[in-house]
Design a binder for these strands. Structure first.
Lengths: 104, 104
DNA sequence: GGCCAATATATACTTGTGGTTATATACACC
DNA sequence: GGTGTATATAACCACAAGTATATATTGGCC
């Protein structure tokens, strides 16, 4: 399963975005993350965490029998780079709309 | 099919990102877009275009029997808004790395 | 070593996505 | 109205994603 996930597919999954959000607040153990997603079982969360690790959006450090997960958000730069040219586009579009409104 | 696609899932598909890229250059008819993705059949492209329309990333205007597709990139703002807090994060991380390198 | 806690992996199942072929729809042109 | 072109939808299929249950692994503790 999960032959090869890229960063776009990684963040397309809502539970994984939730995990990233939790990790953006602070580092957490796998167990804490499991508890934070009560609709999912422990293996399900563990799998999502694996995906996040494999695309470079998170990393885990052992701490005894725990695993402390931390955010590695620079993987999102790939998405940011992709979106950049479009950003200019919609800003122009907004500018044009504002202009139109001002012209009323 | 495609019960309900959101923007994140829409752009997770490589062919759809390709279509967005083509539309960012200029408006194109559905037929031109089909010709630009020679690995896909016409119905497959038509479906991807429907997804892009439904999430608000593209729109189609009839022109006789043709349909002229145009980019509506402001739908990507949802992704941009989502990524914004993380952007600060990885910039800090880069700064820390640069600092570390400078300290050598 | 034996036992418990924390986490990851294996296996199996279900469902949805993306693909194809076939068909419908809509418009243009004669 | 009939025919051809452009595009969308229908029906079906294969495969991968996401989930659950069951099991393995790893480390702490007695």
């Amino acid at each position: 399963m999960f032959s090869r996930v890229d960063v776009f597919e990684a963040v397309a999954e809502p539970n994984r975005r939730h995990l990233l959000s939790l990790l953006s607040e602070r580092d957490r153990t796998a167990g804490e993350l499991v508890d934070s997603l009560p609709t999912l079982t422990q293996p399900a969360v563990s799998r999502h965490l694996r995906v996040l690790r494999e695309v470079g959006l998170a990393e885990a450090h052992p701490d005894g029998q725990r695993r402390i997960y931390a955010l590695k958000p620079d993987g999102l730069q790939r998405i940011d780079d992709w979106i950049t040219p479009y950003r200019r586009y919609w800003r122009n579009h907004l500018d044009a709309l504002e202009q139109h409104l001002e012209d009323q």
